[in-house]
Structures are given as structure tokens and as C-alpha cells.
């Protein structure tokens, strides 16, 4: 399942853990985000060993500022405080690849 991140503190805790975490940076007004978010949800229910989160860029401006999100949707994988992968745009094939690579990290 995909959990919404509710604060910058929570975000920092998640990315600094040893577990691989993938974030969906999205907004309610972003059309391409709506297209791909069901695919993200589906992959999240299928892939083991990775945690899935979503960040509303309007509600969590501090997080998107820190990460430097320039367009949406942006999917970023983190492990141990480091960015290990990123996909910008609603591209299901690239998203799947990002998740598969992250699961092996």
C-alpha cells in the first residue's frame, strides 16, 4: 500500500532508514499524476521489500523544495539517506524499472 507522508520530519526519518523507500511526488491538479497513480498503487501491492509513499507537493512544500522536485509526477527511490533512482513523468515502463531496480538494492 502507498502511505501519504504527513510532515518533513516523517520524510527525513523514512529516507534515513535502511529500507528502500519510493516516493510519488504529485498534486491534485496534475493530470499525468492521476493517470499513473493507480499503476503505482498496483505495483506497490505486488512488490515486496520496498516501502511506498506519496507526497502532495502543495501540502508538503518543504519536502519538495528539499528534494528539488521540478515537475510532476516525479518518483524517487531512497536508501540510507541516498537517492538511488528517479523517474520524471507518467511513464509506466520506466516506473516499473525503477521499482524493480530499487527492490534489488
Amino acid at each position: 500500500m502507498v502511505k501519504a507522508v504527513a510532515s518533513f520530519e516523517e520524510f527525513k526519518q523514512i529516507i534515513n532508514s535502511d529500507k528502500v523507500a519510493i516516493f510519488d511526488f504529485w498534486a491534485t491538479w496534475c493530470g499525468p499524476c492521476r493517470v499513473i497513480s493507480p499503476i503505482f498503487e498496483k505495483l506497490a501491492s505486488q512488490v515486496e521489500g520496498v516501502e511506498f509513499y506519496k507526497v502532495d507537493v502543495d501540502e508538503q512544500g518543504e519536502i519538495s523544495q528539499e528534494v528539488g522536485v521540478r515537475a510532476m509526477p516525479t518518483f524517487i527511490a531512497f536508501k540510507g539517506g541516498n537517492k538511488i533512482g528517479e523517474v520524471v513523468g507518467a511513464n509506466p515502463a520506466k516506473l516499473q524499472e525503477l521499482i524493480q531496480n530499487a527492490a534489488k538494492a
Partner: peptide
Amino acid sequence: VPYSPELESGAACGIPV
């Protein structure tokens, strides 16, 4: 809106900064 190549295809929305 900072440029990113994904904006060209409409697969992403730019964020005004």
C-alpha cells in the same frame, strides 16, 4: 517553471518556482 525534458510530451506537469 524550470525546464525538464518530460514537459515536452505532456507526461509531466511543471511546478512554478
